[in-house]
Structure formats: C-alpha cells, structure tokens
C-alpha cells in the first residue's frame, strides 16, 4: 500500500492506495501520526483507491481517529469503495467513521 498526503486550506488529505490489511495497517497508523506531528489535526483519509480493508485496517483508522481527536482535531474518510463500505456497515463502525463522497466535502460544513 502507498501513502501520500497534501495539506489543503483547512485539512490534510491522506491518500491510501492498495489493500489496507494487517501488513499495511501499522504503516497507515505511522503515516497519519507523522502528518499530525507535522501540525495537521484535521485529517481526511481518501479511500478512493483502497479496494480492500479488513478488521486490522479498520482498527488502524480508529487509532488514527483517536490520535487526531487527541490533537484537538478530527479524522474523516472519503470516497469509500464497496468492500470498505461493507466492512464499516457489518461492524457498525459506519456510525463512528462517517464517510463523505469526496475529500473536499469532509470538512466543508465546519
């Protein structure tokens, strides 16, 4: 899985491309922790090119959400694909990790 990020006006967009599984989950956690340490506490994880997520990947997203909130901000997810949406719904975590249609929409009403 490949990660990249870009600081926008009111948030930092993290792009995750590939499979978010037990191998890449700790790397996502480390990457987002670094983004927060660089001064961004409003994070959007763009999952447009994340075709797969398992419970390890979900756990990493929850860990990143907690880290963003501890830094006084928030973490939101965007452009969720069908398999990721299914895992969020089956674990009832779609209520905790709200999915937005695009990265731009995630913090647009704040």
């Amino acid at each position: 899985m490949e990660f990249s990020y870009e600081v926008k006006d009111s948030y930092a967009e993290v792009k995750a491309e590939g499979r978010l599984n037990m191998v890449s989950a700790p790397k996502l956690r480390e990457f987002v922790t670094g983004v927060i340490a660089n001064g961004s506490n409003r994070i959007v994880v763009n999952l447009e090119n994340t075709a797969f997520m398992d419970s390890s990947g979900l756990g990493a997203l929850i860990g990143c959400l907690k880290a963003a909130r501890q830094a006084g901000g928030d973490l939101r997810i965007a452009a969720v694909q069908p398999q990721v949406k299914m895992v969020l719904q089956l674990t009832s975590m779609d209520k905790v990790l709200t999915a937005y249609g695009s990265a731009e929409e995630a913090f647009s009403n704040d």
Binding site: D54, I62, G63, K66, V87, L90, T91, M93, K95
Partner: peptide, 16 residues
C-alpha cells in the same frame, strides 16, 4: 467498544 482498535475479526467472519 466503539474505540477499540482490535477484536472485530471473528464477528466479521461470521457475518460474511
């Protein structure tokens, strides 16, 4: 709980 970062695997498998 909602904030737990692990422990969802078996329930997920059963649901799938």
């Amino acid at each position: 709980g909602e904030e737990a970062e692990s422990g969802r695997g078996l329930a997920l498998i059963q649901a799938l």
